[in-house]
Design a protein around this nucleic acid. Structure first.
Lengths: 187, 187
DNA sequence: GTACGATACGGAGGGCCCCGCCGTTTAGCA
DNA sequence: TGCTAAACGGCGGGGCCCTCCGTATCGTAC
């Protein structure tokens, strides 16, 4: 079969991606591309060839995780309690972002750099929450003027602001809860 | 009078700070220190001498602005409507962060690097909102379990997430409003 | 007015990183 | 097995950050 990716290219791609995951987990979104290349045992040019630009690498790194989140959203779209489903998903996202260093940064980046690409992580996520949000809104459990983009921006912001706290997951959950119920006291 | 800062040192300090303000406004929190030095017409070592580390520079850049915010808080601590005063301040902060590029980043940084320094921006801000928050809580307009740190983290997060949006100020205000009233519909 | 000491300056050099170029290797098909 | 295009990786340029150290300058004392 002609015009297909060569076998070694595929292998290097996998190698690099594997190293990149560890490296990003360790050093955040601004991990050294050169270092990744060294550890993976390839030239730095090869990294740039497979992933043009840091954004592309980050996207690949978080791709499956993002998909997992999307799948989760799809799974709970038929839940009985629409509001609970939405909140649960947001909670999952927050917890996730807290454990996956650099993801929030990466999201914040690509969402404004190329807001049109369908494969962009932020777009996928948006499309994933949208049904959840709509159902919740229809059942009257969530305000009408809230958009999926709003929600993503909010949780991304929370993730960014808590990323280097002592206990990001706990802080994130706490802030998300505040955001959901509002700062005002329970009526 | 001995043991005082030399005159040229003072001048260079001012020069650098002035350039740094423009440079940070243009390129965000990770503006090039070397470039600042070049534009200011001093050696790069001189910049590092006056401001050891990027954090110190950013702190100096935003210092007066932060103080302005603190003053604003102090001024409205005796307002009739405690809740309105608090929300107004938060709104001001958000608008401010939207216009001052890099400030949110800088805040997020120093708040976890050195949470004990009294002169640290985040600490000052925290102390400034605290009275506002307490009064609002006492009047029952704000939930009791909300801390000043929570509020700052939230608005910082919003600022971070909206920093490079098309219209950061508008987006920030919108998200802040959502956060304040909660995502749930008005009862 | 001058000479001295402390203070502040800035250039040089090393390390790391990102990027683009280009000669060389190698996989895959004939 | 030979050929071609795909893929590789080393090299050099440019930047940034940082440290060190010789030197210029300020401020003061004489």
């Amino acid at each position: 079969m002609p015009h297909h990716q060569r076998a070694d290219a595929r292998r290097n791609y996998a190698r690099i991606l594997a190293v990149a995951e560890r490296e990003v987990a360790a050093h955040g979104a601004d991990a050294s591309l050169e270092r990744i290349a060294r550890v993976a045992g390839v030239g730095s040019a090869t990294v740039r060839r497979h992933f043009p630009g840091r954004a592309a690498l980050l996207e690949a790194v978080f791709h499956e995780r993002i998909e997992a989140l999307c799948a989760r959203a799809a799974a709970s779209v038929d839940a009985v309690d629409a509001r609970a489903a939405l909140l649960d998903w947001l909670d999952g996202f927050t917890e996730y972002a807290a454990s996956a260093r650099g993801m929030a940064e990466a999201l914040a980046q690509d969402r404004l750099v190329e807001p049109e690409r369908v494969s962009a992580c932020s777009v996928q996520l948006e499309q994933a929450v949208e049904p959840l949000l709509r159902r919740a809104a229809e059942s009257g459990a969530v305000a009408r003027d809230v958009t999926a983009a709003d929600l993503l921006t909010l949780v991304t912001g929370i993730a960014l602001a808590t990323e280097r706290h002592a206990d990001p997951a706990a802080e994130g959950r706490r802030l998300l809860e505040l955001t959901v119920r509002g700062i005002s006291p329970v009526r």
